[in-house]
Design a protein around this nucleic acid. Structure first.
Length: 879
RNA sequence: AGGCACGUAGCUCAGGGGGAGAGCACUACCCUGACACGGUAGGGGUCAAGGGUUCAAAUCCCUUCGUGCCUACCA
């Protein structure tokens, strides 16, 4: 016997284990089935499941379960990402807590500790994904630092270097003084900050007067090597060969001319610090300026900063401003708002720094990646993200891939300090190829984590080996992810996939929403507005949660999530449970009936027809990644058609005396429920399995069942029309009951008028349902009837139903009701009539539209006549 | 600064050239033998504003206002 309410906790772990133990998640290498493959966006090993993961993986799981049921050989490739900086930070924090640090521990030992940490905690997020129901092929789980993927990384690095697509160079990069590493441009978060613009005087070297420059970062002036003005700027025309003196240090600086300088901004004179500003660096290159680095890797001033040596960069700013003021060189200070770069990991202010780093020359790779989307080899859904993709790709800059941390793929490069040779190779070289020196120094930097992530779609499938998996599953079918990593990850996978596999990494990219709180704000720990997916699962069950996410996953819009919403869908899950409970209560014992003896009633024919239509709707929606449409189709159908109408009508057969009808009802009911469960399974894997396993007619796991198709059900338009008539009567009576406030327990007598004889027959053979669902005692029906005096009337189509209300009918109330109905029809009719009398409409509108409007007017006219007659009837009685 | 979305019922949102929709909330009546996490019925909208295209606009175009987000080197 089933519980009265659905208890998710009793079933979820049980079925997940069952599926996993039976290998239902496993992809096949030898198979005739068409392949379908998704690689998971690898979560960080340090991570724990948040709403973004929950949505992302729910959608992937829906697709995978759906495709399995559709007969595909599905591979959902799981794994995690080593998250260089994040993971290193976590382990470093541990060390600090123990009173030591990574330098004391040493590189090798430190990496050992990270691996230990990963062994211990790296599985957390994987287990959380399992709680969500994710049907990944866990036997193939990969990690970006595992042996195979590391081999892929090395291979790619060496090949790109040999093709001159990776180079080593001295450039200005984004430096995080706290993480102690370079960051790619993308990893810098810009934030608007209130600050100041300082106007500083630089005295001329050989004459009186000064040039005033404006800057937001006075501390960098110590590294200035020029002052630039625009050659077009009349104010500075005569300054060629002029020199000014750097304040405080009194170093002479050349005045140079460069079109980059904006004459409108500040004073039109720009101080140039090539070692600490990206644009100054560029200008420095064009004018061959000296680069003087005054800030070190800790964000402190170095020996070249003279009196400010060893000061923190912010401390130095204050001090230098004071000194400038004392020297009378600080002309003025203006409040100024501008955006400042911060480290995406630790939010520390970025220091642009001159440094030797490894870069990927992205241009040639990007070209191919742009073309692949342009010609449709990869489709981005929704397509408006294509523009964003192009925008980025068209303006792409070289990618700084070296990181000065320890946890990650160590760059396979060696330096020969004898002759300065740089050797890049997969294996450690024995000697320098040019000078034969045996004492080589290995590069200490590691690669950006995204470098290995960029290879994910093929490295996880076994590349660089030529594996069956690659042959079968590459290119993968679809990548499901949020737009926040469009550039970080998608674009880079496109570039690497095309370069090394010579084929796109995925046919489709489905970009889904971000999960926000009810006020549309991003969920974040600091705001305290996070909803923990695991708490939600605990409270409402996985199926409710998944269904909620899917139901709100409309394309191109973010999801505002609150617990009430999930609670709402828990009601739906419970409704499903109870519908199954009804069915199961009536399925005791075998069904003793030959297939040819099964009697299909009108409601049976109708629900089967509807099942076919809904299957088709859902299939189309899922094929187009319209998860919300698929979810709401099923919601609407299951609750408002299957439960509200079909189950109520099926009770007739179940509770009736006719044994054949009873057996038929039991049989069909079970069939219908099984189809419903199969439709729901991709969204609600647990409850659908739980009920499925209880059904005597079901065999094996629902995971192995087929997703319903329209062709599984007989097309039966007639059933739809006939059911409309029956429902029309019932709704009409209910409507009157409701509006007339007639107690549900009070039965009524009704009289139906249907001009069409066939319609009359249909209704006659379904009287039981009308009596039951509309609480009708006696019922008369004919093609023409005369209206009983004390009756309220509902008009539907060309038919009407009179509800006899002897002694109950409030004549005034009924007149009011009729007038309301008349007014509504008149209003509709007015609009349509206006169209028909519009010459332009009649001439230019398509015939089918005109016909449709004509028909509409005709049927409204019939309805209006009947309503009018009824009203006149009451008005005449009153007089 | 540029770009991209979005303003539809009290709330959250579907829809996307030819009859304004859903869920929740609300109101009334009901514990009817699956379900009160339920049933039946009902109320509620100048589809942000203004203009244009069209026989026809919530839907397409333009402008304005508002709200988000992304990208960008104005020191």
């Amino acid at each position: 016997m089933m519980n009265k309410g659905y208890e998710p906790k009793d079933v979820e772990d049980k079925w997940y284990k069952h599926w996993e133990d039976n290998g239902f998640f496993k992809a096949e290498v030898k198979s005739d089935k068409e392949p379908f493959c998704i690689v998971i966006p690898p979560p960080n090993v340090t991570g724990s499941l948040h709403m973004g993961h929950a949505l992302n993986n729910t959608l992937q799981d829906i697709l995978c379960r759906y495709k399995r049921m559709k007969g595909y050989n599905v591979l959902w490739q799981p794994g995690t990402d080593h998250a260089g900086i994040a993971t290193q930070n976590v382990v470093e924090r541990d060390l600090v807590a123990k009173g030591t640090d990574r330098d004391q521990v040493g590189r090798d030992k430190f990496i050992e500790l990270v691996w230990e940490w990963r062994e211990k905690y790296g599985g957390v997020i994987i287990n959380q994904l399992k709680k969500l129901g994710s049907s990944c092929d866990w036997s193939r789980e990969r990690f970006t630092m595992d042996e195979g993927l590391s081999r892929a990384v090395k291979e790619v690095f060496v090949r790109l270097y040999e093709e001159d697509l990776i180079y080593l160079g001295d450039y200005i990069i984004n430096w995080c003084p706290r993480c102690h590493t370079a960051l790619a441009d993308l990893e810098v978060e810009h934030e608007e900050k209130d600050s100041f613009l300082y106007y500083i005087r630089y005295q001329f070297e050989n004459r009186d007067g000064h040039l005033t420059v404006a800057t937001t970062r006075p501390e960098t002036l110590l590294g200035d090597t020029a002052v630039a003005v625009n050659p077009e700027d009349g104010r500075y025309k005569d300054m060629s060969d002029s020199h000014v003196l750097l304040p405080i240090l009194n170093r002479p600086l050349q005045v140079i001319f460069d079109r980059y300088v904006d004459t409108e901004f500040g004073t039109g004179a720009l101080k140039i610090t090539p070692a600490h500003d990206p644009h100054d660096f560029e200008i420095g290159n064009t004018h061959q300026l000296e680069r003087i680095k005054v800030i070190d890797e800790d964000g402190r001033m170095n020996e070249l900063a003279g009196p400010y040596k060893d000061m923190d960069r912010f401390e130095c700013r204050e001090k230098i401003l004071g000194d400038l003021k004392d020297a009378g060189l600080l002309e003025k200070i203006e409040p100024y708002r501008h955006s400042v770069g911060h480290c995406y990991r630790c939010k520390t202010m970025i220091e642009p720094l001159l440094s030797k780093q490894w870069f990927v020359r992205v241009g040639p790779l990007a070209e191919k990646a742009i073309a692949a989307v342009k010609d449709g080899r990869t489709r981005i859904v929704p397509s408006n993200w294509e523009k964003v993709y192009y925008e980025w790709m068209d303006n792409i800059k070289d990618w700084c891939i070296s990181r000065q941390i320890w946890w990650g793929h160590r760059i396979p490069a060696w330096y020969c300090d004898e002759c300065g040779e740089v050797i890049v190779a997969k294996e450690e070289p024995k000697e320098c190829p040019s000078c034969k020196n045996k004492d080589l120094r290995r590069e200490t930097d590691v690669l950006d984590t995204w470098f290995s992530s960029a290879l994910w779609p093929f490295s996880t499938l076994g590349w660089p080996d030529k594996t069956d998996e690659l042959k079968i599953f590459y290119p993968t079918s679809v990548l499901v992810t949020g737009f926040d990593i469009l550039f970080f990850w998608i674009a880079r996978m496109m570039m690497m996939g095309l370069h090394f596999m010579e084929e796109v990494p995925f046919g489709d990219v489905y970009i889904h929403a971000l999960v926000r709180d009810m006020d549309g704000k991003k969920m974040s720990k600091s705001k305290g507005n996070v909803i923990d997916p695991l708490e939600v699962i605990e409270k409402f069950g996985t199926d409710s949660f998944r269904f909620t996410l899917a139901a709100f996953a409309a394309q191109g819009r973010d999801i505002r999530l609150s617990e009430e919403r999930i609670e709402g869908y828990r009601h739906f899950v419970n409704k499903i449970w109870n519908s199954a409970r009804l069915v199961l209560m009536n399925l005791d014992g075998d069904i003793d009936l030959e297939p040819e003896d099964i009697v299909y009633t009108l409601p049976d024919r109708w629900i089967l027809m509807r099942l076919g239509q809904v299957s088709e709707e859902m299939t189309r929606a899922l094929d187009e990644y319209r998860f919300n449409d698929a979810a709401s189709s099923s919601y609407q159908f299951v609750w408002h058609e299957f439960c509200d109408w079909y189950l109520e009508m099926a009770k007739q057969g179940l509770y009736g005396q006719d044994e054949t009808m009873k057996q038929s009802a039991r049989y069909i009911l079970q069939e219908v429920l099984m189809a419903v469960l199969r439709l729901l399974h991709p969204f609600m894997p647990f409850i659908s399995e739980e009920i499925w396993q209880r059904l005597p007619g079901a065999h094996g796991s629902i995971m192995r069942a087929e997703f319903p198709e329209a062709s599984d059900f007989r097309t039966d338009e007639q059933a739809l029309n006939e059911m409309d008539l029956v429902m029309g009567v019932i709704t009409g009576v209910r409507n009157i009951r409701g509006e007339m406030n007639i107690s549900p327990s009070k039965k009524v007598d009704i009289l139906i008028e249907m001009p069409d004889k066939k319609d009359v027959e249909v209704v006659r053979s379904n009287i039981v349902h009308i009596k039951n669902l509309a609480k009708v005692d006696s019922l008369d029906i004919d093609t023409a009837v005369s209206k009983p005096e004390a009756s309220a009337t509902a008009v539907f189509g060309r038919n009407q139903v009179h509800v006899l209300l002897k002694g109950l009918l409030d004549f005034e109330e009924e007149k009011r009701r009729l007038r309301k109905a008349i007014k509504k029809v008149q209003k509709d009719m007015e609009v349509s009539n206006k169209k028909l009398s519009n010459k332009g409409f009649m001439e230019k509108a398509p015939d089918e539209i005109v016909d449709k409007v004509r028909e509409k007017v005709a049927s409204m006219k019939v309805k209006l006549d009947k309503l009018d007659k009824n009203l006149i009837f009451f008005e005449s009685i009153n007089d």
